[in-house]
Amino acid sequence: MTTAHVPRAAILSPVATGVTVAVLALNLRPAVTSMGALLTRIETAADLSPVLAATLVSLPTWCFAVGGWAAWRLRARFGIRGVITAALAVLTLSLVARTLPGDVAILAGTTAACLAIAVLGALLPVIVRTATPSSAACYTACLGAGSALGALLTPTALAWQVGLGCWAILAAVALVIWIGSSRHLTALAGSARAVRVSPRTLFPRGTVATLTVHFGLLSAVTFVLMGRLAAILHAAGLTPAESELHFAAAMVLGVPVSLAVPYLTRRVPHTPLAISFAGASITGLTGLMISPASVTWLWTGLLGVGLGALGLALVDLGRRTRGDPDTTAALSSVVQGLGYTLAGVLALGIGLLETATGTWTWPLFALVVALVGQAMTGTTIGDVRTTPTSKEVPR
């Protein structure tokens, strides 16, 4: 009796893929949620102005818009392997740089970090969709875990600089792992510099527009909550420690929800899922408006469940293109680029509205309106196709 020989690479490839996807996804949110967890403390310690604080909350969405839109062209010009390597290097350095003294350092460092995350976030769905079947679950779970870890661990640091800067270690680890495993992954994800798909060739245009608006609305809600939920709870009468604990709990709850998203999408139609996630967030925000100090755990728990909408949207980017890496990259770039632009406008407007009114009542109402729009656009999303143009993307 003979035993079939299984090449060592065939055994290690799924493991390497899972580890790489996990560590990349873990880096997509701590830079944002760590700032949200410490923003109130930083405002006092670093004497940030209210306008700068509002800018730091909306900044990720603007950077994600620019980086998301640029990711497709960067991949076409330099290849996915080189682009992700450079993005991880920039992320590592910028997370250290934003702990240096002065408003310019924290603003510039946060901007560079968010741009790097935007490029990673736009290209990672390409790898996830073309890798192992379990990669989608790993992706969404680690995306949620990164949010939770940034919110949960950052406030435990003795100094806010340590709390923000320690995440550079995770980015450096991701860089080392990516360099070691990227050759296999980029072969799957289409590493050629010349690709035949442009965002301009995606159709139907109405579906692409609906996806973009849907992504923009849910991103605005997500990043306002990531950046300001602790401040909202503190303004409602909770102590800073209680506010940070509730914020961390909402982020932690998002982990099992994100893990369940890929499995739910195989068994439940998209529309009920989209409406359920939006409904959970609407209920949570309404509870915070009406009675924030009563059953606060329920309201923040519902918001944690609602955060699963972002994981649903990111998984859908690959599912809507039937796994083609070039089409996935083009769709991810246009949806995240323009969607985050819309999210940036809304997030900045909500921050300025709170500054102008001195209360969170009207900003929370604006978030509820955005969630209604999120639920409506989530019911009309279909598949996206493309018409190949030429052997190389027009410069």
Rank of each mutant, 00 (worst) to 15 (best):
P292C: 13
T355F: 05
G284K: 10
V295G: 12
G337K: 00
S276E: 00
G279R: 03
L285G: 10
G318H: 07
L348D: 00
A343F: 00
L353Y: 07
A313C: 14
L353K: 05
A343K: 03
G284N: 10
V295L: 14
G287T: 06
A313S: 15
T341A: 14
G287A: 06
W299D: 11
G337M: 02
L338P: 00
L352Y: 11
L314V: 05
T355N: 10
G308N: 09
L312R: 08
T328M: 08
I350F: 10
L348R: 07
L285I: 15
Q336F: 02
L342W: 00
G279H: 03
E354S: 13
F277M: 09
A343P: 04
I350P: 04
A347M: 08
G306S: 11
L302H: 06
V305P: 12
R322T: 08
V305H: 08
V345W: 00
G301L: 08
L352A: 14
I350Y: 09
G306L: 08
L307F: 11
R322P: 01
Y340A: 03
Q336P: 05
A343T: 01
L353T: 15
W299Y: 13
L310E: 00
M289R: 11
L302P: 12
L307V: 06
S291D: 15
I290K: 02
D316G: 15
V295N: 13
G339L: 01
Q336K: 03
S276F: 04
A280H: 04
R322K: 14
A343W: 00
T328C: 13
F277Q: 06
L353D: 13
T321A: 14
P292N: 11
I290V: 15
G304S: 12
I350V: 15
S276W: 02
T321I: 01
S281W: 00
S281G: 14
V334R: 05
G349I: 04
L302N: 08
A313M: 13
T321P: 03
S281N: 07
L338K: 00
S291C: 13
L346N: 04
G304A: 12
V295I: 14
G306Y: 05
I275L: 10
W299I: 12
A329V: 06
T283I: 15
I350N: 06
F277A: 05
S333I: 01
A309C: 11
G306Q: 09
G306F: 05
G308R: 05
T286A: 15
L314G: 03
T328A: 11
E354P: 08
T341Q: 03
P292L: 09
A280N: 05
L338T: 02
M289V: 13
T321K: 01
W297N: 12
L353A: 15
L331I: 03
D316N: 14
V334L: 09
P325V: 04
G311F: 03
A330C: 07
G279D: 09
I350K: 06
S291P: 06
L288W: 07
T327S: 09
V345Q: 01
A347P: 05
D324I: 03
W297M: 14
G308Y: 04
L298G: 13
T300K: 11
I350W: 09
V335W: 02
V305Y: 04
R322E: 11
V334T: 12
S294V: 13
G308P: 03
L307C: 10
F277K: 07
L346Q: 02
G308E: 07
L342P: 02
T283G: 12
D324Q: 13
P325K: 02
L285P: 06
V334G: 02
S291M: 14
L331E: 03
I275C: 05
